[in-house]
Design a protein around this nucleic acid. Sequence first.
RNA 1: CGGGGCGUAGCGCAGCUCGGUAGCGCGCUUCAAUGGGGUUGAAGAGGUCGGAGGUUCAAAUCCUCUCGCCCCGACCA
Length: 636
Amino acid sequence: MGNSLLSLISGLQSPTLTRHPPIPAPDSDAQRQSLPNYRRHVPMRMSKLFFQTLREVPADAEIASHQLLLRASLVRQVAAGIFEYLPLGQRVKQKVEQIMREEMNAIEGQEITMPIVQPAELWQRSGRWYEIGDDMARFKDRNGRDYCLGMTHEEVITDLVAQTVNSYRQLPFMLYQIQTKFRDEPRPRGGLIRVREFTMKDGYSFHADFRGLDDYYPRVYQAYLNIYQRCGLEVIAVESDTGMMGGTMAHEFMALTPVGEDTIIICDHCGYKANRQVATFRKPEPPQEEPLPLEEVHTPGAHTIAELAAFLDIPESRTAKAVFLVAEVEDEEGQPREQFVFAVVRGDMELNETKLANAIKARHLRPARPEEIQAIGAEPGFGSPIGIQRDRVLVVVDDLVARSPNLVAGANKPDTHYRNVNYGRDFTADIVADIVAAAAGYPCPVCGHPLRAERGVEVGNIFKLGTKYSKAMGATYLDEKGESHPIVMGCYGIGTGRLIASVIERSHDEQGIIWPVSIAPYHVALVSLATSKTPEVAEAADAIYQQLTQAGIEVLYDDRDERAGVKFNDADLIGLPVRLTVGGRGLKKGVVELKFRRSGESREIPVDDVVAGVQAALDEEWAWIRSLPKEEVPVS
RNA sequence: CGGGGCGUAGCGCAGCUCGGUAGCGCGCUUCAAUGGGGUUGAAGAGGUCGGAGGUUCAAAUCCUCUCGCCCCGACCA
């Protein structure tokens, strides 16, 4: 790369630049006014482009998008989860960001820029300085003051709004930015799917009351759907966890792909869909039986539900499973303290820790250590709600277990279980709630049809925040009666890099990327097959390059002295939607070849009418994007 | 943070078991031929073998420590 960089720089400075045709003058007064000193679309010859496509797959890249981002020379990794965008990648990023900008402006968003480096004081006021662990990068300045790198901007923007807004007359409004965030993730992975430093479009809306937020929220939802469609990315929106953010409603936008980190539960019949963290399902009716007498049974070596069910020759659904956790909860004074939690779910089902955390209003959950389990009188592997030190344990029982008669459960003694355990008679709970994870095959909570599970990448979220930050940061306003109220907030985020990676995951083939025209780094790959013996081909290609550029078409002109195969392979790898091949063969017939990257369809268009032919082809690509299915915004 | 793997030229890798002057392919430079799907030949440039310490006459290779990167899991405001 060093050599090519040097030649690039020297090329820019040397008189050899003049061998290229001069940049054509703007062809209208309007253009002249809007483009005073530069051209909107920087035309590019590949002989001058800073890039290096890779034939071989970098060993560190496993998933398709990561491999292709590197091979097509869009990005380069600098450290774990930290990337640089090269010129081609930068153009994609800018196009995505421009789409986000336009859609945010369309719902009256106003763009601002907030700092990456933020004073600790703001985060101390919200409390998150103390709540957040190592994910936040912190440092001191030369005077010893504490700072952090912004992971998100609720604190900064709420402080800004608190200082600016006094009256209901100033509400509502939405501010957004496209800015770098840093989260020191424990494990970055998957190229741009999960990184530490990333660019995010984050928006925040401010309303006088919840009703105002409720009215605005669907508009953001719609704007988000517009963004994904315009980027050529199919997503599904799912309900998501509001967690400890104190909000009332949240949605995530998921790009379905097997490399995704989240699981989404979908009903094909009625359209129900939700993040697995919050998905519910219709629980089966427990058998109608009279409670039988409690009975101890020797079960040597049966540590797991599967072993237990096999040993006793009963279905797993007739067992109860104990899960021991330690939760961090707030006591009456709002101080954090650890609480031992004993969760009971039916043996054939999985505990959903998010549901559990919400049920007990816990900040964090972690698995209990064996010594902690024994300290409350339980036996790991044979845990039971019967015979534990009840006063030291918060018992949470799934509602299905509470309704199921005569289950088999542990006895808190090695190699021993109880038969005919019945809720109410043999044990009680502090809380009975749905704490079980939905899974594929379970009945839909709405219509009862079997649910399906898919993997997805979260490419955006929208969130009704409420007043958590406005209260903490003192963002209040006076209403018509002169009464003070906290401002009601929503927040809305999309990660640019993750969106780009998701597009590639869903749109590529063996040869390379297949860009949607809307975010392709250029529209047309103009491949010249000129050789030293066919200067007329080079002249024709140059002329076509000029015509297309003047017509406002974004052309990446492959004028390199390379073999046809090299150029074709690079064109496929980079994946521009339309490839135009200028060769001696076609020129003799007065045509050039136009090939669609997506469909592989190829057609010959007359040299004399190249611009029209290319424009027609690009129109088809734009039409394809508009034809993508788009979800409806649910009426809330 | 637990488990696994890997650090040797820009990229992909061999060499390490059994210490003895660092190799291959791609890419890059120059020349020639070739010229519609990664062409061919010739000649070149390029490496503190991740780092530190140790053992040894001698360390890419053996030992100790350390740093980095990838994957699985935990975590994910």
